[in-house]
Structure formats: structure tokens, C-alpha cells
């Protein structure tokens, strides 16, 4: 499974690299447009287009009916009721294509999330690195080795109740660094990125399962059964501004992909 995720992630790396030198919103917009177009085509072939068209025609008709009888409240309320019922029917036709597009869209959203939700540490930023280990591991045996470019500001702090060891790290020089965790002889690394680049960021490494493979594609999961159960740190939130207004990347993705889909549905010949 991991190789597939890796390939998918690599594809996004290449795609994002094209917009590396530009404002982050440009790459996001392009990806949103592509996603909107692809999903529209998927929608076309996975939905009952005739039924959707018929349901939409009925909805339009009932809305027009409201206007046909301006003096007849009974007719108006009847038309409104029928419009709402037809709308409910339309929604049922939307379920099958929704289920089909759900998985690829979630995978795309995860790829965007690891790039646009957080930004790398900047020199001078401080973060906590937390390592969770198995119950049988002696917390005193857990050590951290940080490369040059990162500074360990504190000694290990052991939280026995949580089987957790924490360090405070400070970013010193831009770059991508692997810190090494040693827990009773088991050694694992964790990538920490310092700088301004738009790149994938993993806030944690967890033990491997289907969900972590797909939901945390930026770094390989920890092996199953490893005494190290989780390595986690916190990156700062990325803020995207357009004309002075702060926009969440999800909103940009949603609006651009949907509006583009609506804009080209006539060209592609799709009923949505």
C-alpha cells in the first residue's frame, strides 16, 4: 500500500514543484481546477444523468409554478412542497457518484493538507518534540539526537503516566533535518523542515495501519510492533492571504473546484 501512496505523493511533489516560486494560492487554484474537472467527468459516468436531469427539470418547473399562480396561495404552497420533494429526490441521485468520488477526493485533500495546512518552522521558532513509547520501555533509555541546524533547548522531560518523553527544539538554520530517536536500542527518525519552502510536512509518525498510510503520506509510518509508538511535533499554521483577507486553503479548494465544475459542465455535457 505504501508504494502506491508514495507514488501519489511523488506526483503531488512534482505538481507543487511547478508552483514553488509562486504564491501558494496559485498552485492550490490550479490543483483545485484540475480536481473540479476530473471529478466532473467522474460524476458524469457514475451518476444517473437522465434521472438527475429529470429531477432538476421538475425542480425548475415547480419553482416556476410558484410564479405562475401569484394570487393562489394554495397553488403556491403546493408548488413549494413539490419543489422540496423533488429536491430530496435529486439528492438521492447524488449519493452514488458522491460515494465514488469520495475516496479520490479525500486522498487529494490529504495531499493538500500536508502542504497547505502547516508551514515549516522558521529560524528561531521553537517546537516540542514528543515521543511515545511502549509501556515496557524504560523512559530513561529514550534519547534524541538532533543534527546541526536544530538546537535542543531542554533535556528530556519524561511523562511517566503517558509513557512519553518530550524535548524542546529550536530551529536554527533553514534545511530539512532528520532527528534520531533511540528507545532501548530501537532507532527511528523524524523529518523536521526549517525554512519557507512549500513542501509536505508530517507532524507525526505513527505505527503503520491502513488509515495512517493514507492520512499521513508525508513520512513513512513507524513499523508495526516497534517500541516507539509515535513521534510528534507541531508546525505553525499556514496563513494564506488574498487582498488582505485570510483564506483557509479548504475554502479556496472548495469554491474554486466547485465553481470551475459548474462553469464547464455545459461544455463537458454533465448534469450535476
Amino acid at each position: 500500500m505504501w508504494p502506491i501512496v508514495q507514488a501519489f505523493t511523488k506526483f503531488f511533489d512534482l505538481l507543487i514543484a511547478l508552483f514553488q516560486s509562486m504564491h501558494p494560492i496559485i498552485g492550490l487554484t490550479v490543483i483545485s481546477i484540475l480536481t473540479g474537472a476530473v471529478m466532473l467527468v467522474v460524476w458524469k459516468y457514475t451518476s444517473n444523468q437522465k434521472a438527475i436531469a429529470a429531477a432538476k427539470a421538475k425542480i425548475s418547473a415547480y419553482i416556476l409554478e410558484i410564479r405562475l399562480f401569484p394570487d393562489d396561495m394554495r397553488a403556491q404552497f403546493s408548488a413549494q412542497r413539490k419543489a422540496l420533494l423533488a429536491n430530496a429526490k435529486y439528492m438521492t441521485y447524488a449519493v452514488p457518484p458522491l460515494l465514488v468520488v469520495l475516496l479520490p477526493v479525500v486522498a487529494i485533500l490529504v495531499q493538500l493538507d500536508v502542504r497547505y495546512q502547516r508551514k515549516p518552522l522558521e529560524p528561531g521558532d521553537v517546537t516540542l518534540l514528543k515521543v511515545k513509547v511502549a509501556e515496557e520501555v524504560d523512559l530513561a533509555s529514550v534519547t534524541l539526537d538532533a543534527p546541526a541546524g536544530l538546537v535542543m533547548e531542554t533535556a528530556a522531560m519524561r511523562v511517566v503516566a503517558e509513557d512519553e518523553v518530550d524535548w524542546r527544539l529550536r530551529a536554527d538554520t533553514p534545511g530539512e533535518y532528520d532527528v534520531t530517536v533511540n528507545a532501548g536500542g530501537t532507532v527511528e527518525t523524524k523529518r523536521i523542515v526549517v525554512g519557507e519552502r512549500l513542501t509536505k510536512l508530517a507532524e507525526f509518525r505513527e505505527q503503520s495501519n491502513f488509515l495512517t498510510i493514507w492520512m499521513a503520506p508525508a513520512e513513512k509510518p513507524l513499523p508495526k510492533g516497534s517500541p516507539i509508538q509515535e513521534i510528534r511535533l507541531t508546525y505553525p499554521e499556514r496563513e494564506m492571504k488574498l487582498a488582505g483577507i485570510s483564506l483557509h486553503w479548504l475554502l479556496v479548494f472548495f469554491v474554486v473546484s466547485v465553481l470551475f465544475g459548474f462553469a464547464i459542465k455545459g461544455v463537458v455535457g454533465v448534469e450535476v
Binding site: V101, L102, S257, G261, F262
Partner: peptide, 17 residues
């Protein structure tokens, strides 16, 4: 807004109605 364009198509159309 954590929904893809597919849900968005259906959502927007229904919302309009």
C-alpha cells in the same frame, strides 16, 4: 467545507433550490 467538488455540486444545487 471539508467536502470535495462532488458533494459541492449536489450541495450547491440543492442549496439553490
Amino acid at each position: 467545507a471539508y467536502i470535495g467538488p462532488g458533494a459541492g455540486f449536489a450541495f450547491l444545487s440543492s442549496f439553490m433550490v
